[in-house]
Every structure is written in C-alpha cells, then in structure tokens.
Nucleic acid binder design. Sequence first.
DNA 1: AGAACCACCTGGCAGC
DNA 2: TGCTGCCAGGTGGTTC
Length: 270
Amino acid sequence: MPELPEVETTRLGLVPRVVGRRIRDVVVREPRLRWPVPRGLAARLRGAQVRAIHRRGKYLLFEFEAGHLLVHLGMSGSLTLVPPDRPVRRHDHVDLVLDSGDIVRLNDARRFGAVLWVRDPARHPLLDGLGVEPFDDAFGGDYLHRVSHGRRAPVKQFLMDARVVTGIGNIYANEALFAARIHPSRASGRISRSRFDRLAGAVRATLTRALAAGGSTLRDFVGSDGQPGHFQLEYAVYGREGSPCPACGAPVRAGRHAGRSTFYCASCQH
DNA sequence: AGAACCACCTGGCAGC
DNA sequence: TGCTGCCAGGTGGTTC
C-alpha cells in the first residue's frame, strides 16, 4: 500500500491529536510483524510523551525523549486514531493508548509492516542508507543524473530504489514516468540531464497531487481518520491496461520490471 | 557494485 | 458453491 503520500497523509492526521500526549499503555496483540515487535514496549513507553512525529521515506518515527518508535505500514498497513470503545477487528495488531483515551491502532493484514524501537535514527540500519527525500532541495534532475551514472537497470527500478530517492513505490513510479513521458524500460544511465529535470518535476507534481487527494486506496489503506484516499481515481496509467491513454488515446500497455507490474503509454513515453 | 530473484503473509478475484 | 492459482501498495537477504 502505502507510499509517501499515504504515509504522509497518516502522519498529518495523527500530529494534531497525538503530539504532546503521553502514552498510557501499549497493547501488542500480535507481535509477529516483519520483525518481532520488541517485548517490553509498554514498560518502556508508559508515561513517555510524544514529542513529534517524523517521516523518513515510508517510515514513521514517533519521537520520545529516550528514542523513537519506528512504524512501517508494509503493503497493507494503516494507523488510525480511534476512541477507547472501538471494537478490536481482525489484524488490529498494536495499540498505542494515549493519556487522552484515544488509541493509535495499527491494522496490517499481511504483516509486512514493522514496529521497532530505535535509539538513534541516524545510525539505524533501516534508515541510514536511505536516499534523498523527493521534496528536499537536494533532489532534482541534477541529482538523478549524477546518481544514475553507469546504471543499466530500467529507470523505473532506479526511481523505486530507496537508496536513491525515498517514498516512491510502484504506483507513483508508473505515474511519474508517464507524466515525464519517459519509457519505464529505458536504462537509467542513458537519460539526459534535461529529461531527468522533467522527471524530478513529475515526481514532485505526482506526489503533491496524491497528497492533496489523501493518497490512494486500492484495498486497505485508510488515513488516520479511517477514511480512504481517492487518488486512484486520477491514475493516468496504473492498473489501466488496455484503457485509452489520457494524453493520446492509445491503449495503455502493461509489462513487468523487477517483478512489479508496469503500466505505460508506448506512444507518449520514450 | 549492480541486478535478479526469493521470502515474508493474507485476502480478493478470475477461472474452472 | 468451492477449489486453485494468481495477483497485490514493500523491502531485506541471498545469489550471481
């Protein structure tokens, strides 16, 4: 599920009612996520105040005085803010119970998500190799051009490589490449600086539009308020094999890169 | 170093 | 209706 727009939608929804609150309790109903949820989380966090909620790539980091609680939503996760009397549903694996009574509840059917305690995010193996954020000043055509030097893998894979740029998953890679009119199979090291400028702009524009729509909901994603996103209604190519390209009317084609579905317009993208 | 592939897990859907 | 096989928003680990 969640790529940058969905994770950021979640973060923005949580901030007003979670930052500044203290943790009353942590309930772990199912510790078997991607990695085991650390034991003793409740003892560690009880009484601790949430100072901020950060996002790095697709990771959320709840900042406490002693460290950070890292949350990743995997493919099917969501974090919702629910009242104390909300019945527990299937796949509601972890609750952060706040001193307000509200509960930050993680639901994740596929359990590819993660909840970990991180003392120092700058030195954590999951975080320290991450590339630039798409909305950082460091990100742009110049950066992509430089980093892609010598790479033969398709540009779509390059764009989805979190060590290059974070937050872009399969949906937004497809959509950004369409918006930039670049063919997903093109070798990343053989794309000009000016076309990378266009791609960087398309990435930002696509993510911005998705954020404005509250992200995408294909199946499970809901924001912190429990409401789905609606950017999937604006897809130009993703999941639209055989439908007319919104720019030229040619049928959208499907393919695969690195095991992931790819959608593109063969007449618009080169 | 870079790229290809597998693994993890559940649920929804198409096809028979 | 049920069964089987395939597919899905991610990403770490292994192998070449």
